[in-house]
Design a protein around this nucleic acid. Structure first.
Lengths: 187, 187
DNA sequence: GAATATTTAGAACGACTTGTCTATTGTATT
DNA sequence: AATACAATAGACAAGTCGTTCTAAATATTC
């Protein structure tokens, strides 16, 4: 299969970028992990920068799918689905593989606002906000735009704190705040 | 003055680290900006890593002083002082010099949890939480520990989102949530 | 003013980086 | 079986990085 090597590189790169950062992860380490020659990487992606962008885009779509699926499995009620997303965050933070949100790392490592990684991170946050917005509207909650922005802010904050403290406490706190916000927006 | 050169390097390094990141900022760029020879840096700090740590520690203390002072100038009431801190965040994000919270960048660029920069960032977050805790206790708010954790989470989340979107909206949203939380904890 | 530190500019070093080139091996497809 | 393509290992170039060293110039102290 032609694309299997490509996907392999993509996956290995994502794991290393997550764990050790983008700049700190050399191309050679990705190659070692993937067991692939250097030219296969450069033939498929052109450059490390482009590989980073593709990893970010793939990760965002993957994460969105997982979030949506998790919400659907948790409940049929949009209100409950929103809370389920925050419970999912708690489980994510408890995962020993968890090393913080990749997109927060991307904006930190590529501070130029116009850089492709920074824009990919912005797009990711907007996608997350859009998911919340859709659920807020379905649940007939008041001021859904502002509320979805707040929920996305809570998720970002929880991920940010969890990266430092490596506990589920931030997710619990965020969930608790989300419950309060939803309750107020429902009556 | 012996320490003036040292402080100059410290300040220039902080500005460059903030704007362009730690790894992306080479030692030579710091020297150019400070107008200082290479050996003055290495005689004063020993290494770039140590310079980073000192920059982080200095920045944290500086930020804490500013926050406390801002709160004191805003009001005599602890309750109002908490809200004033979130209003200060909004002004900070509007500053054209704002490039995101330095400590969030530090944990992203030094993912190793035991690294000195990561620990400095953790200490910074704990200091911020401690300030909130003190104010919550003075204001006689319910469950001050949990509440101060939540407030710190809000501040982190707002900084995180503001770095991407570069607007005061996240600060306004965080302030709004904080108002809700304080109201609930006061009655 | 002499002696002692400090600071300077700049060369040099070794380790690392991304990316390219080449020559060889493996693998499909016809 | 033969041709076309993909992938391999590894050397290589070119550049950047942090760090050290040296020798001259400057500042500080006695």
């Amino acid at each position: 299969m032609a694309s299997s090597k490509r996907d392999l590189v993509l996956t290995c790169a994502r794991e290393l970028f997550e764990r050790e950062g983008f700049h700190a992860t050399g191309v050679d380490r990705i190659l070692d992990k993937a067991g692939v020659a250097k030219m296969t990487l450069y033939n498929n992606f052109g450059s490390k920068d482009q590989l980073i962008v593709e990893v970010l885009n793939q990760s965002s779509l993957l994460m969105m799918e997982r979030i949506k699926q998790y919400a659907l499995e948790a409940s049929n009620d949009s209100y409950e689905q929103i809370l389920a997303i925050f419970r999912a965050l708690g489980e994510w933070y408890q995962d020993p593989e968890f090393c913080g949100c990749m997109f927060q790392a991307a904006v930190a490592e590529f501070p130029d606002h116009d850089s492709a990684p920074a824009q990919a991170a912005l797009a990711h946050h907007q996608r997350l906000t859009a998911i919340f917005l859709e659920l807020c509207q379905k649940a007939m909650l008041k001021e859904p735009e502002q509320l979805s922005r707040k929920l996305a802010l809570l998720a970002s904050g929880a991920s940010c704190v969890a990266r430092q403290a490596k506990a589920r406490t931030p997710a619990d706190d965020a969930l608790n705040i989300a419950e309060i916000l939803l309750e107020r927006a429902s009556k």
